[in-house]
Computed example of a mutant assay.
Amino acid sequence: MGGVIVIGVAGGKDLYVADLDAGTIKPITPPTTGALQTVVDLRSAGASVIKGVDVAISVTSAEDAAHGRFDG
């Protein structure tokens, strides 16, 4: 299992790296080259890029998630 996930929220431009083992989430400096830049370009064009994650749900708050209330 991978313990690190790159996250971007729909409608936002920022990317974050979540280290699940360390329990941290930090912003990533926007890439200028490489595969992650390709992901940024695709995302800017409206695409969703998913690899190695089988569940991702947007919620309004942690409390909503804990109670099974999901957006949409």
Rank of each mutant, 00 (worst) to 15 (best):
A10W: 10
D71N: 12
V49Q: 05
D64H: 12
I25K: 10
D19K: 02
G11Q: 08
A18Q: 07
H67A: 14
V9E: 10
P31M: 04
F70W: 14
V40D: 00
L20G: 02
I25P: 00
V4F: 03
A56P: 07
A22V: 00
T38G: 08
G52I: 11
I25S: 12
R43N: 03
A18R: 07
T38V: 04
V39D: 08
I25E: 06
V59S: 07
A22C: 02
H67S: 14
D64E: 13
I7F: 02
G8T: 06
I25A: 13
I28P: 00
G12I: 01
L20N: 05
T33Y: 12
V6H: 06
K13S: 11
P27Y: 05
A45Y: 15
T33K: 15
V4M: 06
K26F: 01
M1E: 08
K51S: 15
A22N: 06
S48R: 12
E63Y: 13
V49L: 09
R43C: 09
A66E: 13
G68W: 09
G3V: 03
D41I: 03
V17N: 01
G34D: 08
G52T: 09
D41Q: 12
V39C: 03
V55L: 15
E63Q: 15
A35C: 04
A35M: 14
A66T: 02
P31A: 12
V9C: 00
V49F: 05
A22H: 00
R43Q: 06
D54I: 09
L20I: 06
A65V: 07
Y16I: 00
L42R: 14
P30A: 11
S61W: 13
A18N: 07
T38P: 00
I57S: 12
S48M: 09
I28C: 09
V6D: 05
R69Q: 11
G3R: 13
I57P: 00
L36I: 04
G2W: 05
E63D: 14
G68K: 02
S61N: 09
D64A: 14
T29A: 11
I57E: 13
S61Q: 10
K51H: 13
A65C: 07
D41A: 10
Y16W: 12
D54E: 11
A10G: 05
S58I: 11
A56M: 12
V49D: 03
G8E: 00
V59G: 03
K26M: 10
G68S: 03
A47T: 07
V39E: 02
S44N: 15
R43E: 04
I28E: 05
G11K: 08
V39N: 03
R69G: 00
V59P: 03
G23S: 03
M1V: 04
L15M: 08
G11F: 09
I50A: 04
V40G: 00
G68R: 11
